[in-house]
């Protein structure tokens, strides 16, 4: 059965938001379509009359360095992200996270904006952006608004912005400074349902004495929306990385996170069990990076 009736390929943001506003809620933004089409086909997305394809809008395809930081257009694909030298240099956890998504066929079309807008609590690109404290730019026919990425999510698969009228233009991430590093890791099942059992992105800035000046940690799925581990971040600030810190970190995170069982995918107990391992792996890799 046909998943849509009309297909639009706007070439500017204005054209796209105008179309969305005119279609008054009967349309959907499509980027790579790797989530949307399956959601539609399997009945998880309400029927769509018109698809507004945003992948021919130049602005949304760009990665560029601006005075405020790096801008990543929402329609940039995972493959472009993992091959981009600026991103490799500055936002390692995003590159690592996107590199684990799908195979090349999926990464060639799936976009970072789609990953975020899909609003799953454990999207790999999303979790990385949350740890990087990215700002997101939402556009509608009235204009654009910048807001912290965490403010986009209202629940699993639910966004605070209206996906049938608004779109994400892109993300902004500060350039990496001295003593800063990030890493991403996850535990998956080999093959099948492409959502991490548990994933984690960690960003850290170290003071010159080797202690942690500040840290940001995102974990998924750790609740209805991408989870920021604030208690753990507080704990880490000022600490140095040693066995005690890691041990306490795991305990703190286990206490603050809200884990649950997903049938046939992972038990709550298993997710809890994986926390220490993911913390060890990510923090270990950041330390190694900074020694490079």
């Amino acid at each position: 059965m046909s998943l849509w009736k009309h297909y639009l390929l706007p070439t500017s943001i204005q054209e796209a938001v105008d179309a969305l506003s005119e279609l008054d809620g009967t349309s959907a933004v499509i980027a790579g379509g790797t989530d949307l089409l399956l959601d539609l086909d399997q009945g998880r997305h309400p029927p769509v009359d018109t698809m507004v394809d945003i992948t021919r809008i130049d602005e949304l395809q760009q990665v560029r360095v601006e005075p405020e930081g790096i801008f990543i257009g929402a329609a940039v694909t995972h493959n472009e992200i993992i091959h981009n030298p600026v991103l490799k240099e500055n936002v390692r956890c995003l590159v690592e996270g996107c590199g684990l998504i799908g195979g090349p066929q999926v990464r060639n079309v799936a976009t970072i904006g789609g990953n975020v807008a899909h609003a799953l609590p454990a999207g790999d690109g999303t979790i990385a952006l949350v740890a990087l404290d990215a700002q997101a730019c939402i556009v509608n026919s009235e204009g654009e608004t910048w807001l912290p990425i965490g403010d986009l999510f209202a629940g699993p698969g639910v966004t605070t912005f209206d996906r049938s009228r608004e779109l994400i233009k892109g993300f902004r991430i500060p350039l990496s400074g001295p003593g800063e590093g990030s890493a991403f890791d996850r535990v998956m099942r080999p093959q099948g349902v492409a959502i991490a059992i548990l994933n984690m992105a960690v960003w850290m800035r170290f003071a010159s004495d080797g202690s942690i000046e500040s840290a940001r940690i995102a974990v998924g799925p750790g609740g209805p929306t991408p989870f920021r581990a604030h208690a753990l971040e507080d704990l880490l600030s000022g600490r140095i990385i040693d066995a005690d810190t890691l041990h306490e970190s795991a305990r703190t995170l286990q206490d603050e996170i809200k884990l649950r069982t997903s049938p046939y995918r992972a038990t709550e107990a298993y997710r809890r069990h994986l926390i220490a391992t993911l913390l060890d792996r990510t923090i270990g890799r950041i330390s190694a990076q900074l020694l490079e």
Binding site: G33, P104, N108, V109
Partner: peptide, 14 residues
């Protein structure tokens, strides 16, 4: 670039 044709709206390739 390799892509999956089964889930690629035909119009995307215009």
């Amino acid at each position: 670039q390799p892509v999956l044709s089964c889930t690629m709206p035909a119009m995307k390739t215009d």
